[in-house]
Design a protein around this nucleic acid. Structure first.
Lengths: 137, 137
DNA sequence: GCACTTACTGCAAATCGTTCGCAATTTACC
DNA sequence: GGTAAATTGCGAACGATTTGCAGTAAGTGC
């Protein structure tokens, strides 16, 4: 189902801003800041305003089409993905790599079995140094 | 080793602001926002300014005496603890509970063995509904 | 195609937790 | 006590994100 269909299916209008923001995220398949997104959107259409980018992103978040992650001051966005795909964030170059860790599901089970807490989503972030940065030093 | 000794050992001065911020965190043993901390510090000394609280917190962060966590807009601070102690955050009442999950160490091993990423710290956050809130509904 | 309703946009101003510059105060050391 | 330097309080600045509002354009019915 395309983004246009998803939007229409939920009675939201298909607008240039929304289409372009989605296109940029989908093409990048990586963590982009709001500034990154705005810049790439501008490659297609200079007239899109940053408010519209933010508004599109928060709509997509509510529809669970994107995943927002905050790193200190600023956020990054990426197409939504499963919890078992965890984030490895390099402290040196600030890029985020995905790693599929099925172990995460055990964690969920443990919490469910041992505590009275009902988990809905899990966010695992590992900080460290990525391959290219560890070669570089 | 008391906070005074830790500070002196690293050539930082022992001041009223630093002592009180530490005392508040240590007494609470839970996640406090900057506003919470300031308020509690004011119970001891009205004259302490919020800048000093922030400055104390960032010093303690650098010394790895406290752990800062961002939830959306705002941060919370707590005395530093092991990575294996993970955070269960209730979506309804916004409180954070600790859960000791030794599994986290397997995750670290997996990353080390399977990828070329060198982990330094792991942050696991689970969102969901806590016991008291699930009774309340 | 053409009106019509109203969701959505662009713009600029506001927000709000956190940071910063600087003069005044405190700390640590003699 | 006296001194040098670190730390504070104050208020102004910051910066990513949000918001209010008047104008624009997407969807709908004709």
């Amino acid at each position: 189902m395309s983004i246009d269909e998803v939007l229409r299916a939920q009675d939201f209008r298909v607008t240039r801003a929304r289409t372009l923001v989605w296109q940029v995220l989908d093409e990048a398949q990586s963590h982009l800041s709001a500034a990154d997104i705005l810049q790439r959107v501008h490659d297609y259409d200079e007239s899109i305003n940053s408010s519209s980018v933010y508004r599109a992103l928060s709509l997509f978040s509510e529809l669970e089409l994107v995943r927002e992650t905050r790193h200190g001051e600023l956020s990054t966005w990426e197409p939504a993905h499963d919890d078992a795909v965890i984030h490895l964030r390099c402290e040196l170059c600030d890029t985020t790599i995905h790693f599929n860790a099925p172990t995460v599901n055990n964690l969920r089970k443990q919490v469910r079995n041992i505590t009275n807490f009902t988990p809905t989503s899990i966010d695992v972030r590992i900080s460290g140094v990525c391959e290219s940065c560890s070669f570089a030093t």
